[in-house]
Amino acid sequence: MEMFGSAFDDSMFAEVRDKVTVALSPYKAKFCEPQWFCESAALDTEDSLEKQKVFKFRGDLALRQGSYQNALEAYSSCLEWIPENNLSIRRDVLEGMARSYTQLGERERALETADLLSKESSNTCHLINLLLLKVSIHQKFGPIGSKMASLEQLCSLLPFNPWHWYNLGQSCLQRMEADKPLRSCAPLLRGSEAEQKDGWTEESGGEMEDRTWLKACMCLVRTRLLLMALKQQQSSFVLQRSENALRWLDKALQRLNPPEGAMCSLTEVMSEDLEKMREENQDGESLAGLCVQSFAERWWNKVLLTPQAHRPQKQPEKL
């Protein structure tokens, strides 16, 4: 009886054939002078890819140097040479154009370009970049409500990123300061003129101020909770940045002066999902299957239903 494993295939004893070696041509790296794409000779080519690179690099350099009109011209020329299937370069160029329009003070053109990016967004990375772009546009032109709306979407999409909550809290504080002169001049405003002031009216002014105060408190509490949780894993300048932010948060909350009961309630509501910090990951997920609760559903409505979340009678100090 033949034992298992005792039989050998005859091919194992066959002579090994000599491997044929193919001589490879030596690799020659292409050396380029600094800012070679700025020279007029760089466009003396029929290669569409090379022309695309030249205009793209020119636009990026002009944007970095603050020559926003030159950046727009270069980016516009680059779009003509981008293939339809190269969406990554197209999105990069459109974002550069939107930022150039923003710096040139052309708000409508910047938002129109952002809308083009919105139509071509296919995953969460695209959506995050789009929202960050909108935040910068709204921050430049001053509509605090629009900036807050974009930041709320970022907080819903990336609920464990403390810096989006930090920026949203700061925006709430800015809005509280901006509402003060509106209250003083409210009797002079009539009808639609009052409504145009970022959604504020004389009748709803006090209520809006209270809601903004409450939203500022919840954002600062959430930021503090996240930074405290992440602080254990940080070091060097990252840790220093977090510690500086925590000191500012403590001072800001002290000036907002929330009652002790409100602080306990806000802390309880805003820390409910912290145990899921390492589980939730939506980076690169397709928008087609993405299901994210809105800011109001996930946090704001819960805070409003909390009995202790009310504003103290004492007005907070100016931040």
Rank of each mutant, 00 (worst) to 15 (best):
F237P: 00
C38G: 07
Q308M: 09
Q69T: 08
G169P: 02
M1N: 05
G169Y: 04
D10L: 14
P307R: 13
L182F: 12
E279N: 06
L157D: 02
C172S: 09
Q240K: 11
Q69N: 09
H126T: 04
W248V: 14
L304R: 12
Y101W: 14
A216L: 03
S286T: 10
S118T: 12
E177V: 11
P187Q: 02
L304W: 05
R107F: 13
T267E: 07
L117S: 01
M1W: 03
A149H: 06
F57W: 15
R107G: 12
P181G: 05
G289I: 10
E260M: 08
E275N: 13
L116C: 09
D92T: 09
L189M: 14
T223F: 00
K140L: 05
A229P: 01
F57T: 00
M97Q: 14
G66R: 07
E73D: 10
T102F: 04
Q308E: 15
D18P: 02
C217I: 07
L230E: 15
R183I: 00
T45N: 01
W81I: 02
R17V: 08
G105E: 03
L104R: 10
E202C: 12
P307E: 06
L63W: 03
R241M: 10
Q234M: 13
N123F: 01
L154P: 00
C217S: 08
C219M: 05
M218I: 13
E202F: 05
L79C: 03
A114R: 04
V292T: 08
L168V: 02
R190V: 12
D44F: 06
P181E: 04
E195Y: 00
E202N: 11
A41T: 09
A114T: 08
Q103I: 00
K180C: 08
K19G: 08
R311G: 04
L133N: 06
W163I: 07
K119G: 00
Q65E: 14
S192H: 11
S76I: 08
R311N: 04
S271N: 12
S76M: 08
L230M: 14
R58G: 03
S294M: 02
I144E: 01
L188N: 15
Q65F: 05
C291W: 09
L220Y: 04
E39R: 15
A98F: 07
L94K: 10
C155V: 13
Q293N: 08
L132R: 14
M3Y: 09
K56S: 07
M1P: 11
Q293M: 09
L49G: 06
S11M: 06
D250C: 03
L246C: 07
D9S: 14
Q282K: 15
N85Q: 12
L87G: 10
E280N: 02
K19L: 11
P316I: 02
E203W: 12
M218P: 00
E73K: 10
I137N: 03
P316T: 01
P143W: 05
L157M: 06
L117V: 04
L154K: 02
I82Y: 00
W248H: 11
E95S: 14
F8E: 13
L111P: 11
Q254H: 13
G142H: 03
K28A: 13
E268K: 13
A7H: 14
